[in-house]
Design a protein around this nucleic acid. Structure first.
Length: 562
RNA sequence: GCGCCCGUAGCUCAGCUGGAUAGAGCAUCGGCCUUCUAAGCCGAGGGUCCCAGGUUCGAGUCCUGGCGGGCGUACCA
């Protein structure tokens, strides 16, 4: 590729000027008058070479003579080198896109190594809410990005099925169950009030009949607890499936106890000399490893806090062979980061393990009005209700549209809009328009662009500014995916897709028959038509692949609403 | 009090290793449909990048200190 050749030539030229091993990065100038590619190498080398940047740039330029595919090189501004490529070189990406098709954008960066992405990890004590929605979309998109970058990804969901909260759930279910039988049991203090608890109680009654009616004391609470957790998990899994998210493994906290891993972790920490007793409780010296203060592992009543099994769980991840782990969590859990890492470090696991991706909270608005999370009608309490109203694709996209560390405002009014104002639809429409071009071409007997044996198009015929711009954008797709993956930031891909869709729409519109038939992809001149249809197919592939990464459908046609 | 995150156009937000004149969508205003679906396109206005210092040839981006907002800071989960 031309860009790689230029970078290599620049490195060599820099070495020739006395600066070997320079880190050369080419960038896409925003302004087309700054060329197709630009390098700030001369600026970066100025202090090292103790020379004026523009002077260095001129020397570099002198050493780059005769590079194929380059029309001209300019020294500009404070010392930039701007490269203007021949159209053929700009268009070389098109051939690659047509050849790689649905694989265009994949890389081998991860070299097949295993990586775990843990996300959602909701407690089995209630339905999934909107925060879980953001996490589901984010974790799944991140996992998908990693797969596209050549990692072997394991998607995992951890659930706390052992703590006090699950007992409270069971007690709440029992109260509701007895209410169904005409008793006046109140839901326990701090218990779960939601309607879903009553539903579980009804299901329990249906399955087991009157078995627990006289069990106000709770002798069979364990059976109820298991039933409730299972029911809750079924519901969660159903919503996640509807949301298009699938996990390789659901990991239960109780498994840690059953296998003795909690006790073993406690013992190992004790042997490491980082455990002490105070006020009847057992503490871990997490402050020694960067935590703000020491933490309790065993309460004075002998039961464990969440912290201890959390550490045991992550020791398990390490022992299962996962050297790369990303935990996707809400920012309200950020205090666990330091303490879990501290516990792991005390056991000799490297600092900074595991990696965390913390995302900020979600607020929902309808126009100017904030939607409160309450049980009153018209408010959203669960992910399921949201999906039902706006659809899976819109929900997924909206959850991904912002940087994880930025607060997310979910606008229902915009989400329900089906015009191009809605960014998801903008991308889908662009994709559908490109499909339509190919359909019409086929209908007119101009076939052959879509097959695997499509003849090479002449990219030098793509001379309009919008064609050049679109071609360059398409060439940047693999690098954009790479950047999004490394930054753990799917929104970078959203941003790319929206901009690309904008360029597509603009190009499409310029060639609309009512505007300029000569600029259309469907012109009579065969070589020109072939080149433009190739561009259309390439753009379609890129949009489809991008949406695929985000788990969003790329329709070949959009049906007009009434 | 302490810790993490955020502060960019009226609103919601991008801004890649520090680089050229700070960008997009929405909203507002003005143009463009007999033609491949205009669910669109073109154009315009709109900015003390929270403030103050510092590092640098160069800071929205890095450092320090403020101010404002969110989330944490349990022998809760």
């Amino acid at each position: 590729m031309t860009a790689e050749r230029i970078a290599a030539a620049l490195r060599e030229a820099a070495a020739g000027l006395g600066a070997p091993g320079a880190d050369v990065q080419l960038e896409r100038p925003k302004d087309p008058s700054h060329g197709d590619l630009a390098s700030n190498l001369a600026l970066a080398l100025a202090s090292r070479l103790r020379r004026a940047p523009r002077e260095i740039a001129a020397d570099l330029k002198g050493r780059l003579d005769g590079l194929a595919g380059i029309d001209r090189i300019e020294v500009a501004g404070p010392g930039f080198l701007n490269f203007f490529l021949e159209l053929r070189a700009v268009g070389e990406a098109l051939g690659r896109i047509l050849a790689e098709r649905s694989d265009y954008g994949r890389s081998r960066e991860g070299e097949g190594r295993r990586i775990m992405v843990e996300f959602v990890s909701a407690n089995p004590t209630g339905p999934l809410h909107l925060g879980h929605g953001r996490q589901a979309a984010l974790g799944d998109a991140l996992a998908s990005l990693l797969e596209w970058s050549g990692w072997s990804v394991h998607r995992e969901f951890y659930f706390n099925d052992a703590g006090r909260q699950t007992e409270l759930l069971a007690e709440s279910v029992l109260a509701r169950y007895r209410q169904l039988l005409g008793h006046e049991d109140p839901v326990p203090k701090g218990g779960y009030q939601g309607e879903y608890v009553a539903e579980i109680a009804r299901a329990l009654l249906e399955r087991d009949g009157l078995r627990y009616e006289d069990d106000a004391g709770g002798a069979e609470l364990e059976a109820i607890r298991r039933f409730a957790i299972e029911a809750m998990q079924e519901t969660q899994k159903r919503y996640l499936a509807a949301f298009g998210v699938r996990f390789d493994e659901y990991f239960a906290e109780t498994a840690l106890y059953r296998e003795g891993r909690v006790r073993a972790t406690l013992q190992a920490l004790d042997e490491a000399g980082v455990v002490y007793e105070r006020d009847g409780a057992t503490w871990l010296r997490t402050a020694t490893f960067g935590d703000q203060k020491d933490r309790v592992m065993l309460k004075s009543d002998g039961s464990a806090t969440y912290f201890l099994p959390d550490v045991a769980y992550h020791v398990g991840k390490w022992e299962r062979g996962f050297r790369d782990v990303i935990n996707v969590q809400g920012a309200d859990h950020h205090s666990t980061v330091d303490r879990v890492r501290a516990g792991l470090q005390a056991l000799g696991i490297p600092e900074g393990y595991p990696e965390y991706l913390l995302h900020q909270m979600v607020t929902v608005v309808r126009g100017d009005e904030e939607v409160r999370f309450s049980k009153r009608s018209g408010s959203y309490t669960t992910l399921g209700e949201l999906i039902e109203e706006v659809g899976v694709d819109v929900a997924r996209y909206f959850f991904l549209i912002r940087r994880p560390e930025a607060h997310l405002v979910f606008d229902l009014e915009l989400a329900l809009d089906q015009s191009d104002k809605n960014p998801v639809y903008k991308v889908k429409y662009a994709h559908a328009r490109l499909c339509r071009l190919s359909r019409i071409a086929r209908r007119r007997g101009w076939d052959g662009m879509d097959g695997p044996d499509a003849p090479e198009a002449d990219a030098s015929l793509l001379s309009a500014p919008s064609e050049r711009e679109l071609t360059k954008r398409l060439a940047d797709f693999p690098a954009t995916l790479g950047r999004a993956t490394k930054a753990r930031a799917p929104h970078i891909l959203c941003d790319y897709l929206e901009r690309t869709a904008g360029v597509v729409n603009s190009w499409y519109q310029a060639g609309h028959p009512s505007r300029d038939p000569e600029a259309s992809a469907l012109v009579e001149d065969e070589p020109t038509r072939r080149a433009r249809l190739t561009l259309a197919v390439a753009a379609r592939i890129v949009l489809a692949n991008g949406l695929q990464v985000l788990g969003i459908e790329a329709p070949a046609r959009m049906t007009r609403g009434s």
